[in-house]
Design a protein around this nucleic acid. Structure first.
Lengths: 230, 230
DNA sequence: CGAAGCAAGCATAAATTAAGCTTAAAAATT
DNA sequence: AATTTTTAAGCTTAATTTATGCTTGCTTCG
């Protein structure tokens, strides 16, 4: 089941079919061949993106877009798809609040790329750099960690430590490696700090998620075991 | 003084000049004719949008974009501008995280439209010249701010600071980025001014609207959280 | 064999350090 | 003169580090 929903408003049934075929690989699609119906569907406000043809029976695409933006205050990304390719047309489309403008004929790949770019930009698609292992979600952009979708508060070094483990699951990491990575080679700090932070991290993991995924290998190092995360 | 910053990376000096001229009507522009320098500038993370040429001396545009996205974790919109117009090129550009792709020659109007569309979509430009996030309304033209329709008086730097945050909600912004954007790279001012302005801004937000939307991430930076804005 | 000894690692608390905050006053700008 | 910007100082708070005693498992030798 896909979470994204794209509305396609296109009267050429042949083309609409193709579009649907293309876009099905990234989202659920709904097609309308009629301008008026398309407008109504869009008004639901449930679509993550709309592909809108300009030449439609009954109502034209410009008016639909204008209505969505000005009357209905809808802000979903809209990609205009049309044979019209004069500058005036494009300017007009953008002025009414279109996000992109693609002229027929176009390549399947380009359409998909542009749709993906719009979805990404509007925050609906595979965004930032997130690490996921078992129940752990680690967002490197905002340094937020969650375990089973419960937020886990870690301070700077604790966070860095967890990231190091998650980036090297099921791998032995020595105390020296941790030290060199978090404190730097020429740090004056005593290496036993590593133990302190291991202890703190483990305590938080245990308390908040009842997990103890990091094993100690005496005289060797530590290992973050993914298997134990079932 | 405009609040939007656009970086133009384009080695053709003639064209770069034109671009600057075009784009100056919506933002402050910085030009680099050199790929390597352009990449460095972009890494500052203070630009609201980048117009990137692909054919550059030293480093090519693809590599720059790839580095920004994958190594530096930067998410500003990037519009690729190039003579290459094969499908493969476009696909490649989009795959690396471009937001739009415009082939030379292009019309001035179309460029501006696409840039505006991107800025709008990324929350950096409102319909008129107004940014709206939660209860905040920020008018960039007359530099008037309101929270829940109550006016909020901010002086120059306080205003710029708020704008920077509102343009990058839910994103970590480092003290250095703030400094570079508000004071400029080569400013002689002590970086601790940032703390002073943070304090002033927070105090005003708290007093006038009982809001504390800006979180401190010790040793990392600040983050304007939209979620906290009920 | 099994208890003493030992070293690695753990846990907790206390001490230290440093980042960030606040305020007020000085300097610069208007 | 009034406002904004910058500097400077002391303060607050949180992170980091050290110190201490405790636990665990291995080794050794009576």
């Amino acid at each position: 089941m896909k979470e994204l929903h794209i509305l396609i408003v296109e009267d050429d049934e042949e083309l609409a079919k193709s579009l649907q075929l293309f876009l099905n690989e990234i989202a659920q699609t709904t097609v309308s061949h009629d301008g008026f119906e398309g407008q109504m569907l869009g008004q639901e406000g449930i679509y993550d993106l709309v592909v809108l043809d300009l030449m439609l029976p009954q109502v034209n695409g410009y008016d639909i877009l204008k209505h969505w933006r000005n009357e209905d205050h809808l802000s979903m990304p809209v990609l205009i798809l049309t044979a019209k390719d004069t500058l005036d047309d494009k300017v007009h489309g953008f002025q009414l609040g279109a996000d992109d403008y693609l002229t027929k004929p176009f390549h399947r790949e380009e359409l998909i790329m542009r749709v993906k770019a719009l979805l990404k930009r509007s925050g609906h698609l595979g965004n930032d750099n997130q690490l996921t292992v078992g129940p752990f979600k680690v967002n490197l952009s905002n340094r937020i960690v969650s375990v089973n979708d419960k937020p886990l508060e870690l301070n700077g070094k604790e966070f860095d430590l967890l990231v190091y483990f998650i980036q090297n699951p099921d791998t032995i990491i020595t105390k020296d490696q941790i030290f060199d990575r978090l404190w730097g080679f020429e740090s004056e700090t005593a290496i036993s700090v590593v133990e302190v932070y291991m202890s703190n991290l483990r305590k938080k993991l245990k308390k908040s998620a009842s997990l103890s995924p990091i094993k100690t290998l005496r005289n060797v190092g530590y290992m973050f075991e993914t298997e134990a995360l079932a």
